[in-house]
Nucleic acid binder design. Structure first.
Lengths: 250, 250
DNA sequence: CGTTCAATTGACTATCGTCAACTGGCGTGG
DNA sequence: CCACGCCAGTTGACGATAGTCAATTGAACG
């Protein structure tokens, strides 16, 4: 089986039951792997998309830029994610999908995905659910953007990324790779680069985490979680482990 | 046909093609109308939902409250909307659905909706699309929360509501009903009540709009749109009129 | 006529943005 | 090899935006 599809199945298994029929249908999907360099656009805002992008390697992001030039990053995506699954039924992009780091992306034509949905109808609920969890993550981030200060927002972001990377098997103990510049980070948090830098220093000084050389290390999970008021239930993992124990021990 | 279902069909027709088969399946949906008083919760955060709520009359909202008590309102909903359609494949609520004003809500069991999807498969794409547009609106609001100041955010909110109410046939010329207190408004904008009040006065003084006695009146659409940097494409209406002309002339 | 709640105001403070400068690493080309 | 530029990260000073606290007004309601 194609390794991109394997990553997708691993992801789907964390949010729902994947039957053998589903797996067969997914395995039959035609994928075309493409390479995108750091900073490049995978699907630009406004484009009418005819395929979905399954991330195989690297970090992708979704963002939109206002006419005045301000940019907000909506989400980050890694191996097994289909950040533009929505394009299946909303083909006109209202934002940009881009590559934060160098990425390998498996592109799957919409027609092929819709074929798979016909052959394995239980995939409908599963993929639909995936787009709904995507929306749930937006709500969680709206809540932080509207109601929390910069330090809490940053803490929340690192909490979410840590849980997601752990669940995807991409965390190494209490560390994970995060190929972001502080400028990127500021476009996620909605704060200026200067303030982002000072907030990060604050979290470091308080011994909550470190973020250096593209690697995040969680140093005090409980304190970080408390500062972030983080509750992972919006990620809607089936797994009962999530949020019950220190993820460092997952 | 039930009037709630009629409102739903009108809404769906603005975002996609609704076939006769779809309409028959929708018309057969069993609905139980319920009344909710202003301020009451329709579906509380954390509940496992077994039905969808189709708004027939009044304004509903979705929100989440942080442990520290801060509340963010994510969206507002009127006649024809199913604000918790996501519960179909994500039954555990990660936020609250509540009534901003007195509301009449038609509740439809999940099983009945899933039955309708079996009988009219083209409904799948249509309803899925509706949940995707819901997510697109979240992205648009995240962009404003992260990147725009209070005046722009307020202008954007009024622009969106005006377009949506116009498309739903609920606007009267350049006015529409909005049964919000300034406290509610502040929970949408992510600003304090005091600042919300001052921002509103600012927009009034600049002659852009008025908001008094639960009625919003747009006084200078183009200026308002420019201040908000508003682009309605994220609402994904099929209708070519949207955004092309002054909505006051729709 | 008192209570309640929404709207409003003033004074003060805190958070965060802007501007500008400086550092250090890293790769490129003379 | 080293000078140079570039970019990410960092710092200080200052200003703008927005929050908090407290008090007042006015309408609605029993």
């Amino acid at each position: 089986m194609n390794s991109a599809i394997r990553a997708l199945i691993i992801r789907l298994e964390t949010i729902g039951e994947v039957t053998e029929i589903d797996k067969v249908a997914l395995a039959a999907l035609p994928v075309q792997e493409r390479f995108y360099t750091r900073g490049s656009e995978i699907i630009p805002d406004g484009e009418i998309s005819t395929s979905c992008c399954l991330i195989l390697e690297g970090y992708a992001y979704r963002s939109k830029t206002l006419p005045d030039g301000n940019r907000q990053i909506f989400s980050l995506h890694t191996s097994g994610d289909i950040p533009d699954l929505h394009s299946l039924y909303l083909p006109k992009m209202d934002h940009t999908l881009g590559a934060i780091s160098d990425c390998i992306v498996a592109r799957i034509p919409h027609d092929a995905v819709k074929d798979a949905l016909m052959r394995a109808p239980s995939l409908i609920g599963l993929l639909w659910r995936d787009t709904l969890i995507d929306a749930a993550a937006f709500r969680a981030w709206m809540l932080m953007l509207g109601q929390a200060d910069a330090a809490s927002r940053m803490a929340h972001l690192f909490c979410e990324l840590y849980i997601r990377q752990s669940m995807a098997g991409l965390a190494d103990g209490n560390s994970f790779a995060l190929p972001l510049t502080q400028t990127d980070l500021s476009d996620i948090l909605g704060t200026s680069v200067v303030h982002t830098n000072r907030t990060l220093q604050d979290l470091r000084r308080r011994g909550l985490l470190d973020f250096d050389q593209q690697v995040v290390t969680i140093l005090a999970w409980e304190e970080l979680r408390a500062l972030a008021q983080f509750d992972p239930s919006y990620l809607h993992y089936l797994d009962r482990r999530v949020g019950r124990v220190d993820p460092a021990k997952l």
